[in-house]
Structure formats: C-alpha cells, structure tokens
Deep mutational scan, measured.
Amino acid sequence: EEWMVEKALMVRTGLGARQIESYRQGAWIEGVHFKRVSPSGESTLRGTTWYNYPEINKFIR
C-alpha cells in the first residue's frame, strides 16, 4: 500500500490525528508525503487527504 487515508496511517504508524496534522503542517511535503485529491481526481484543498506511507516511513527513519 503506497497511498492511504489518515485512519489507515494511524493504524500503521501509531500516530494520532493531532500528530499527523502537526507533521502535515510542518515537516511533511505536499505531493511527497501527502496529497489532497477531490472525487473528480483533481488536486484541491478540500479533497480527501492521502498519505504516502513509504515516504513517511523513510522520513521517520
């Protein structure tokens, strides 16, 4: 699984929702560690946020 939603990321990493938000707003790079995608497939600020687990795992190492 490369891309996953927040709940799956929480299960895989043990991070809480606030921790994920903090990383997203600070250290993680949009387009690398996470992306927002609307149902139409376009990038957007209001779409579902998807997280790239392999890239996040590399960051944590």
Rank of each mutant, 00 (worst) to 15 (best):
L45Y: 07
V11Q: 13
S38Y: 15
L45C: 11
E6M: 14
R12I: 12
S40H: 12
G16Y: 08
A27I: 09
T48D: 10
S38Q: 12
N57A: 15
V5H: 11
Y23C: 05
R36F: 15
Y23D: 02
E21C: 08
F59R: 02
M4Y: 04
I60V: 06
N52R: 02
Q19T: 06
R18M: 11
G26L: 10
K35S: 07
K58G: 05
G47H: 11
K7H: 13
Y23R: 02
T49D: 05
H33E: 02
E6L: 15
S38E: 13
E2F: 08
M4T: 03
P54I: 13
R12S: 07
I20F: 03
L45P: 10
S43D: 13
Q19H: 05
E1F: 08
G31M: 04
S40Q: 11
F59N: 03
Q19N: 04
E2M: 09
F34V: 02
L15I: 05
N52D: 02
T48G: 07
W28C: 01
V32F: 06
V5F: 07
L45M: 11
R61H: 14
Y53H: 04
Q19A: 08
R18Q: 14
E21A: 12
E2G: 08
L15K: 01
R24G: 03
N52Q: 02
R61W: 09
P39D: 13
Q25L: 13
T13I: 05
T48W: 06
T44Y: 09
I20Q: 01
Y23H: 05
W28S: 00
R36A: 08
P54H: 11
E6D: 06
E55I: 06
W28T: 00
W50Q: 05
I20H: 01
P54R: 08
G26E: 11
L15T: 01
F34H: 03
G47T: 13
R61F: 09
S38W: 11
F34P: 00
Y51D: 00
N52E: 01
R36N: 14
E6K: 14
K35I: 12
F34K: 00
K58M: 07
M4Q: 02
E55G: 03
W3Q: 00
E30T: 03
G14M: 04
M4F: 05
K7L: 11
R18C: 13
M4P: 01
P39L: 12
E2W: 09
F59T: 04
A17Q: 11
R46D: 15
E30H: 05
M4V: 11
V32G: 01
M4R: 01
P39R: 04
G41M: 08
V11P: 03
Y51A: 00
G26D: 12
V11N: 12
R61D: 09
W3N: 00
L9Y: 02
Q19K: 06
L45G: 14
L15H: 01
I56K: 00
N57C: 15
T48Q: 12
I60H: 03
K58E: 09
V37P: 06
I56Y: 01
L9I: 07
E30W: 04
S43A: 10
F59C: 04
Y53F: 11
T48P: 07
R36L: 15
S40P: 13
T13A: 04
T44G: 14
L9E: 01
I56D: 01
K58R: 09
